[in-house]
């Protein structure tokens, strides 16, 4: 569903992403890990068509971002690191606007907004102005806007940041339940989250892929003194360099 081939991004002399290749199969949730500044957000911005890569190509559902930008973007829901929301609009106005941009038909707009509001538990703030919402609510409105029009591919950049523990559990359950129907690329700092939601992980360090495997295979391949390392230990080991 997502195919990334030899992706590179350079800012003058800094190399943010270096020859990265991976695929995410239909219905799969891929955990995307890496230390701060490893190039996760940059990679996600390229995959969603916000930024062009310096080299390489990206395909979503068979559409290349440069050859068919609209077809590409129609199939993609994106929650950036900082949810892009209009503080002056109410949540309903905002979601209505995004639904229009995504081409949700007028008569289905209301039910579609209510559907994502139900999923992300923001039904009680639909009439509030976004500027007055707490970080947790904004994060969930951002997730709701990514889910509008049910795009087959979701790219979520740290979706549980700023949420309280019970909200984190809810959102994790939600993301897990979205797998199967949606193909999801999930970036996060919380390793436990990956163990809970994903079967497969991609770990990058300094713009390069250092691991791309099933969690089980990864554990089997990293053994020390007779026992499998935890994901945390593997992560630290791989990103130490």
């Amino acid at each position: 569903m997502i195919r990334v081939e030899h992706l590179s991004k350079r800012y003058r002399e800094i190399v943010a992403v270096d020859d990265l290749s991976f695929t995410v199969d239909e219905g799969e949730i891929l955990g995307f890990l890496g230390p701060n500044g490893a190039g996760k957000s940059t990679t996600m911005r390229i995959i969603t068509g916000y930024m062009p890569p310096s080299a390489g190509r990206v395909e979503v559902a068979g559409f290349d971002v440069f050859e068919h930008p609209l077809e590409f973007k129609r199939r993609l829901g994106y929650l950036p690191e900082h949810p892009p929301l209009y503080p002056d609009l109410t949540v309903r106005e905002h979601l209505g606007f995004v639904a229009d941009l995504k081409g949700v038909p007028r008569r289905k707009r209301r039910t579609e907004i209510d559907r994502v509001a139900e999923l992300t538990r923001i039904g009680d703030v639909l009439k509030r102005r976004i500027g007055n919402l707490s970080k947790g609510y904004r994060q969930r409105v951002g997730l709701g806007q990514a889910l509008l029009a049910s795009p087959p591919v979701l790219v979520l950049d740290e979706p549980t940041v700023g949420l309280d523990p019970s909200q984190i559990m809810e959102i994790r359950e939600l993301i897990k339940s979205l797998g199967g129907e949606h193909t999801i690329l999930l970036s996060t700092h919380i390793l436990a989250e990956v163990a809970m939601i994903c079967r497969k992980v991609l770990i990058i360090n300094q713009g390069r892929a250092v691991a791309f495997d099933d969690l089980e295979t990864l554990a089997e391949n990293h053994e020390e003194s007779g026992r499998s390392l935890t994901l945390e230990e593997i992560f630290l080991k791989l990103t130490a360099a």
Binding site: Y50, P69, E71, K73, P84, L85, Y86, V98, L101, K102
Partner: peptide, 14 residues
């Protein structure tokens, strides 16, 4: 400034 350009440029809008 608000970062909402990221929304406009990643939704199917010309």
């Amino acid at each position: 400034r608000q970062g909402t350009m990221e929304l406009l440029l990643t939704t199917p809008v010309r």
